[in-house]
Design a protein around this nucleic acid. Structure first.
Lengths: 189, 189
DNA sequence: GTCTATATCGCGATAGAC
DNA sequence: GTCTATCGCGATATAGAC
């Protein structure tokens, strides 16, 4: 009913993903994406900071969601397990349902260092949000930052393993296994 | 004697750093950098992949240096301490001497998310190199990647703390303290 | 929405180094 | 001669200004 559909960002994302799959990220232009979505270049840049940003639309709410989960974690957990609680809940829920989309996105992201770069920035933003949440639950600032980044490393590594592995494995299980593995590796031998 | 001085990249870096300090990263153009260095725009792009890249010239050899150090680490260390050996040696040597330059660079990098992004990619490249070195010393691939990224987190966090703190503290000591702190935080409570 | 700056890169030519 | 680094010109698309 509206002159413009209310889901411009989503349509742009779809158009972009299909074009990236067809001709690759580098040789797809923003005007092409806008055209396929039935919108203008200007509109594209209203929704996305740059061309790369369109690949990370789904992760925008991530930091906020995870940090809320960290704040709501059960008592008695150590700092890292506090952080991992947020990650694990997300891993068990939303993400598990989007495996094919996550895999497709990851394939594109791996094709260009530019995109890996942006993915790392997203991961850093998640770590920052987790650190903030940890501070609010009483973890000292310096510790919070270190723990949050470690949690982010565990999460990103787990995502990679999950996508690379057989598709009937649950992401949460991969995350939990990674967390246990870290315990062993940090201590030594 | 030579039509071109042999240190084009270094001169471009100097020119860029001074311009960034004067007018900021965003409002400095590549032609301006090239002009101040007595070179052309085209030459800039032969030495640097893009405008941001000029800030990371000094870290180019980093991954190789650290991975060689990891390969040469003493026996009997656990995976993480193997990785940290490489980092600690670099922290104790080269880097300690360049504190002012590191601090200046960091100030610019913090001024733009674009630049933090690139810094994260550099950190990831270091982690990849460490992971590879770990694999060659017999650490299983999946473990190596996790440990290398953890080492990278420890290193980057330590650098930040070192720059933020008083200037008579040794970077190595900050790194070692962070490593011990992680031990405590991962285990819990 | 339109207009434009400028980052980025391909190509061909050139100038010294060895 | 061959190799490598530089230069000049030109084209295009991103991204921000108006």
């Amino acid at each position: 009913m509206a002159r413009w559909a209310p889901d411009a960002a989503l349509r742009l994302e779809e158009a972009a993903m299909s074009l990236f799959a067809e001709r690759g990220f580098a040789s797809t232009t923003v005007p092409q994406i806008a055209e396929r979505a039935g919108l203008t270049t200007r509109t594209f840049f209203r929704h996305f900071a740059d061309k790369r940003d369109v690949l990370f639309l789904r992760q925008r709410e991530f930091p906020e969601v995870v940090s809320r989960l960290v704040a709501a974690a059960p008592d008695g957990l150590g700092p890292l397990d506090l952080a991992m609680h947020g990650v694990e809940v997300v891993a068990a829920g939303d993400l598990q349902r989007w495996r094919p989309e996550v895999a497709a996105r990851r394939a594109v992201v791996r094709s260009e260092p530019q995109l890996r770069e942006r993915e790392l920035l997203r991961a850093a933003a998640l770590a920052d949000a987790i650190a903030e949440a940890l501070v609010e639950t009483g973890v000292p600032g310096a510790d919070a930052s270190l723990v949050a980044r470690t949690a982010s490393v565990l999460f990103e590594s787990s995502l990679e393993d999950w996508i690379a592995g057989p598709d009937d494995v649950l992401l949460v299980d991969v995350v939990r296994a990674a967390r246990r593995r870290l315990d062993r590796l940090v201590v030594g031998g």
